[in-house]
Design a protein around this nucleic acid. Structure first.
Length: 863
RNA sequence: GCGGGUAUGGCGGAAUUGGUAGACGCGCCUGACUCAAAAUCAGGUUCCUCUGGAGUGGGGGUUCGAGUCCCUCUACCCGCACCA
């Protein structure tokens, strides 16, 4: 038995319980089981080789859920694996000459070892590694099924091209329009690439969001906006050459504001639009402009923040409604080829961007919508003279047959007319684009396609799957190693037998993460990706947890993939994640020397207000996301070694709400560590008390603590369900504070105290499982907390008979009264009016009005 | 540029439907124990011009009553389709 003075030995205890859990297979699912299933999943990590605090936070959150649900009587599945394909492995190969496979597999080994001391309730027997053929072969098959089902197709699309390195760059590798390594101006190039038809599912993905009631509203909103459904019209504008003759081309423009067609003053097309290319053939200056637009990368952010520029093609476009009216056609750098038809019409009076463009190129501004009830003529004059567009609701003016209609009605009428005169149609447009899955990289899943001169695009036959990556590749030359491998890409055409070539592109790594949650349900299946029955039993994931940075892409791709897999007969499900939780980042203060170099936290000595490094003053910067570049990282291994897993977990859970950013502080982890020792001393005391039920008659103080214990169970249970882990910790601390303060010598004192410590161990178990088990054992329990049901509370013990309520005069607090819970309004009022502070405020006058909310407040309104 | 979010003591945060702002903790202060330190324990800690007043990023509004609802402004953070 530990003496109260002895400090808690986390090293011994944590290793001991981790061994016991492993020996007993405590975290495997029960099979068979009558219990309801619960699937807890954290986003599987990219094996960078170093576990960082963001991982620790993510997996701790999941572990709390998993352990709590297990105690609540669920059959819990909590797997882990590796998102093992990706760019960093190729960068390592390039920079250090290590093979991506060697590097990745070593990292997995290292990281798995770093996981162990965290004490997570993971079932490692389900581990999956996405870079292994036994995993990725299934997605090659899926892709071929998608191809058959018309979900996969090939088309040309634009990429960031580094002219020096001769490689395609990721957007993050394009910095200010230049390649990150070469520094050369990045160009946009067209390549043939594979796409998945996620746009076919746009409406269903949008509708599905409504069913995701256990997702954060902000994520649902972001997905809705990403899909970006908008109703509008496609409008046809026949083009007219400078000579006044029709060219025969018809420009198709998408607009959400067909009601403003009468205010059109120009049309604009993307620099990548076919018409732009055609005009450029005879106009070298336009060619230069297009080249200029192609510099700076493909990212939407870069395109939309660039200065708005246009080039007048000299062509004009025929207005659909006004006979003989034409507007100039520009090529503009802000028009996206990927959205709508790659062409817009500009109505400067009612669109900010068009207004800016019109002022820059001296184009007319014609007001065609005025706010209802205002003098339309005066409003129009003001608007046309100014630089601010009017984008609000209103009534059509200067618009022929639309005049007098409200915006919504005018849109409808305009579309109807367009359709009648065959100059356009009403359509629904989505911002969502098809998912480009081709990557010109080595370290990814090979796309199982063969190109034959005679037969064209030929899928690799099932019997030849998987197409595995060759291991003997070199990274000494720029470009994709698969492309220049001596033999790998040269194969016989499966259909005609003549020499043919493999597709050398690999899949986007989002491909692997779009179905791994299903693979976890039957990870050892060899001839199919997963067993249908297993997937039907375990999916959807009941609680998915990960960073908010994945709020759109990964989650949307997974939702799409689940639908696509269902359509190909793999399963029968639409939504893979029933519950979603997005955690915040882990941040730390930053430190810099006067010369601007970043310093690691360990290199900085803090003294009072200031900080120094080897005697030199250090600037303490604000807290930012932990990153290698700013050197503000804290190594979890060091923390675990110094304070143990429980302290690290407790601090991460207690300091901030899980969905917000967490600031890592040394003081915080120290505080958590001290608390664990305090709890440990309580437990040591309680261990001395023989178990006994509380006596029927006990002292009022002991009875009050007993009520508090029951309140703690209720509050903690509720907080855990709602992901309020920081207040969970606060509630548990309140409980242990009360236990520490209570007088054991009163009637029932010992029994209540012992019961309180037992409950505290159970409540804290999901958060700090090692010390909880140790306490549980100290109290003489023979079973593990992993097999112990969650404590229940007696609702009758949750509340006191009396309640203290606030008394306000004119909304300002002047005192409190303590009344019986059942006290009526009259009793509350007279008690409140009796307060000396209230008397003073009233100054002898009668109150004008008294508002009484029983159990809450009395507010006296004085004259 | 577009989309999403956040703002409360010296610090992290709490306040679940509009009802006692600052729970719980960190830090700090005072005291006890100690030769001393650490650890531990007890007490205190929103601010101010302090018998009162102010106060939840700034300004305005609704209400008996606003951190919470509405309008407006500011600052910071995240995502933007080839990082994962």
């Amino acid at each position: 038995m530990a003496s109260p003075e002895e400090r808690y030995n986390f090293r011994e205890a944590e290793a001991k319980w981790q061994r016991i859990w492993a020996d007993k297979d405590s975290f495997k699912i029960e099979e068979p089981s009558a219990k309801p299933k619960y699937y807890v999943l954290e986003m599987f990590p990219y094996p960078s080789g170093r576990l960082h605090m963001g991982h620790v936070r993510n997996y701790t959150l999941g572990d709390v859920v998993a352990r709590h649900k297990k105690a609540k009587g669920y059959n819990v599945m909590h797997p882990m694996g590796w998102d093992a394909f990706g760019l960093p492995a190729e960068n390592a190969a390039l920079e250090r000459g290590v093979h991506p496979g060697t590097w990745t597999r070593q990292n997995i080994k290292d990281m798995k070892a770093q996981f162990a001391p965290l004490g997570l309730s993971l079932d490692w027997s389900r581990e999956v590694t996405s870079c292994e053929p036994k995993y990725y072969k299934h997605e090659q098959k899926m892709f071929l099924d998608f191809l058959k089902a018309g979900i996969a197709y090939r088309k040309e699309s634009w990429v960031n091209w580094d002219p020096v390195e001769h490689t395609v760059l990721a957007n993050e590798q394009v910095i200010d329009g230049k390649g990150w390594r070469s520094g050369a101006d990045v160009e946009q190039r067209k390549l043939n690439q594979w796409f998945l038809k996620i746009t076919n599912y746009a409406e269903d993905l949008l509708q599905g969001i409504e069913t995701l009631d256990r997702w954060p509203d902000k994520v649902r909103l972001m997905q809705r906006n990403w899909i970006g459904r908008s109703e509008g019209a496609r409008v046809k504008w026949p083009l007219v050459a400078a000579s006044g003759k029709d060219t025969g081309d018809i420009l198709e423009v998408f607009t959400t504001r067909p009601d403003t067609l009468f205010g059109a003053s120009f049309c604009a097309i993307s620099a990548q639009h076919p018409i732009a290319a055609k005009v450029a053939e005879t106009d070298p200056a336009l060619g230069d402009f297009i080249t200029e637009c192609s510099k700076g990368g493909t990212s939407t952010a870069a395109i939309e923040t660039a200065e708005k520029k246009g080039y007048d093609t000299g062509l004009r476009a025929r207005h659909p409604f006004i006979a003989d009216k034409t507007v100039p056609l520009y090529v503009a750098n802000f028009v996206l080829m990927e959205y709508g038809s790659g062409a817009i019409f500009g109505c400067p009076a009612h669109d900010e961007r068009d207004m800016e463009f019109a002022r820059k190129y001296s184009l007319p501004v014609r007001c065609v919508v005025a706010p209802a009830g205002e003098d339309a003529k005066a409003f129009a004059e003001r608007l046309e003279a100014g630089n601010v567009a009017y984008t609000e609701d209103g009534v059509a003016i200067n618009s022929d047959f639309l005049n007098g209609l409200k915006v919504v009605e005018a849109k409808r009428a305009a579309i109807q007319k367009l359709e009648t005169i065959a100059r356009g149609t009403g359509t629904v447009q989505y911002r969502l684009r098809d998912w480009g899955v081709s990557r010109q990289r080595y370290w990814g899943c090979p796309i199982p396609i063969i190109y034959c001169q005679g037969c064209g695009t030929v899928p690799v036959p099932d019997k030849d799957l998987p197409v595995t990556l060759p291991e003997d590749v070199t990274f000494d030359k720029p470009g994709n190693p698969l492309e220049r491998h001596p033999t790998w890409k040269h194969v016989k055409c499966p259909s005609c037998g003549k020499p043919a070539q493999r597709e050398t592109d690999t899949f986007d790594t989002f491909f692997e993460s779009s179905w791994y949650f299903a693979r976890f349900c039957s990870p050892h299946e060899t001839d199919k990706p997963f067993d249908k029955a297993a997937v039907e039993k375990w999916l959807p994931v009941d609680q998915y947890i990960g960073g908010v940075e994945h709020a759109v892409l990964h989650l949307l791709y997974s939702r799409f993939f689940t639908r696509a897999m269902s359509d190909c007969g793999y399963l029968d499900l639409k939504e893979p994640f029933a519950g979603m939780f997005t955690q915040g980042m882990v941040c730390h203060e930053t430190y810099r020397l006067p010369d601007g170099t970043w310093l690691e936290p360990g290199a900085v000595t803090k003294q009072g207000e200031g900080a120094t490094h080897n005697g030199k003053p250090v600037t303490v910067g604000r807290s930012e996301k932990m990153s290698k570049s700013k050197k503000n990282t804290v190594d979890p291994a060091r923390i675990l070694d110094t304070y143990g897993a429980d302290a690290a977990r407790l601090f991460m859970l207690s300091d901030s709400p899980p969905d917000r950013d967490l600031e890592w502080t040394d003081a915080g982890i120290e505080g958590a560590w001290r608390y664990l020792n305090r709890v440990w001393r309580l437990a040591a005391d309680a261990g001395e008390i023989p178990p006994a039920p509380p006596p029927p008659v006990m002292d009022a103080s002991a009875a009050a603590v007993l009520r508090q214990i029951h309140r703690a169970i209720a509050a903690v249970s509720d907080d855990l369900e709602k992901f309020r882990f920081n207040s969970t910790v606060a509630r548990i601390r309140e409980l242990t504070n009360a236990l520490g303060d209570m007088d054991h010598s009163v009637a029932g004192g010992n029994a209540v105290y012992r019961f309180g410590v037992e409950v505290a161990a159970q409540l804290i178990n999901p958060l700090t499982p090692h010390i909880a088990e140790e306490i549980w054992q100290t109290l003489g329990n023979k079973t593990s907390l992993t097999e112990t049901p969650w404590p229940s509370y007696d609702p009758a013990l949750l509340e006191d008979d009396t309640v203290t309520i606030a008394v306000q005069v004119n909304g300002k607090l002047r005192g409190t009264i303590t009344v019986a819970k059942t006290a009526d309004k009259a009793a509350c009022e007279s008690a409140a009016l009796d307060l000396p502070a209230v008397q003073k405020q009233l100054d002898g006058k009668a109150p004008k009005k008294v508002i009484i909310v029983p159990g809450k407040i009395v507010n006296i309104v004085a004259a």
